[in-house]
Write a protein that binds this DNA or RNA. Structure first.
Lengths: 212, 212
DNA sequence: TTGCATCCTGACCGTATGGTCAGCTTTCAG
DNA sequence: CTGAAAGCTGACCATACGGTCAGGATGCAA
């Protein structure tokens, strides 16, 4: 019995319900897109009556915004790997690992994020123009320094970042395609490890940063 | 006056209207997703009354299916580059060029395709299990042969393909993000060329196929 | 225990959307 | 020239969806 007794404190109720709604919403938005998602479906998945959703989130847009913001946080968090590193091998390896872990553990989030961007970022445009831009500029600077210090070949930092994003997120966003091509089965632990290793090897070798 | 005289032949009318509808649909589906797209919007963009859409395409699903199939054709066509090539440098270079050209000229199509796959390929599942699988297996075999012949390092062919798809399609699917990070301007000719060169260089070097 | 704020929800509403259809116009084969 | 087939469309319909609300249930501070 993991189910605790009924009486919950107010705080807990709020927290748990919001969490359940956000989780359900993430999944439904990922599977159906914003337009295809319905509050009823999200409510059912969260195990709550629809009207209760509107108690916590006034509108569909507000709920969506919360979901997308959550994802953006996670996305940015993976960034820290970069800063701690002393060179491209450490930094990029760690970043690839982190992003692949997100693709594996948070595929729905990744899809919602992809969808949001594909549709022109109607909700997150301001974040992209501020936070994301700053983050990117910072990393570009780091990569530039690595190049100057001769730690890697002179590759355009921006295109390198795009490549890292694309390659890692692909395993979440196009997970269904990958599964289909994998005989309908999701990737095993081993296959995920191989994926990571392949990406790291090709990119690190490709930018001339591999020690060997 | 490029506008020809009114009287059109039946055949032309049909062809032109279908083309206009398909084009409008591709754009609207790309911008709003299947659920968010409305027949009215597509009709307006195509310059036709809504009822006329239903004359050519019975349902929204049927229209969507046509759009997605069109895209899939283009997607597969880029494949030919692979077969003609005698080695990874030629083959992969040409494939990257072709796919980048698609990303640039057909971003809406790419987005619809991405959306379709992200949502679990409800319409194209059968194609993925037949045509796409066969195509992929064929290319995997080619890459394997290149490896055996010592023309490139032993990289997992599947993960290499995913990397090619991801990297090239990213420029269409996440074009809005890239534009935003590019100061709100779309990439110039020069930037597209640099993108291609960067990708080719990193990947070809990464798999040990660069002549130099 | 009491009073109040928070939490919950079935029933309801207005609107937007996919789809239909009767009847019109236009093309064209014979 | 004529009739039938193809093309076209305004008006209409049923439904599904986002959102509202009145009023009941519940936790909790005092």
């Amino acid at each position: 019995m993991t189910e605790p007794t009924r009486p919950m404190r107010r705080q807990d109720i709020r927290r748990e319900n919001e969490k359940a709604i956000l989780l359900a919403a993430e999944k439904v938005f990922a599977e159906a897109g914003f337009g295809g998602a319905t509050m009823q479906l999200i409510a059912d998945l969260a195990g709550l009556p629809k009207a209760n959703l509107h108690y916590y989130f006034a509108t569909k847009e507000e709920l969506y915004r919360s979901v997308v913001q959550n994802i953006f946080e996670i996305w940015l968090q993976a960034a820290n790997c970069f800063d701690a590193a002393r060179g491209p091998v450490d930094g990029i390896s760690a970043y690839i690992d982190a992003k692949m872990e997100i693709s594996r553990r948070h595929p729905d989030g990744s899809k919602v994020w992809a969808s949001e961007v594909m549709h022109g970022a109607p909700v997150l445009q301001d974040y992209m123009e501020s936070t994301l831009r700053e983050w990117t500029d910072g990393r570009v600077e780091i990569i530039r320094r690595w190049i100057e210090e001769g730690k890697m070949d002179p590759v355009d930092p921006r295109h390198l970042l795009y490549m890292l994003w694309a390659t890692t997120q692909h395993y979440a966003d196009f997970g269904h395609q990958i599964e289909t091509l994998n005989g309908g089965k999701s990737l095993s632990d081993r296959q995920w490890r191989e994926a990571k290793e392949n990406i790291k090897r090709v990119i690190l070798t490709g930018i001339g940063a591999q020690p060997a």
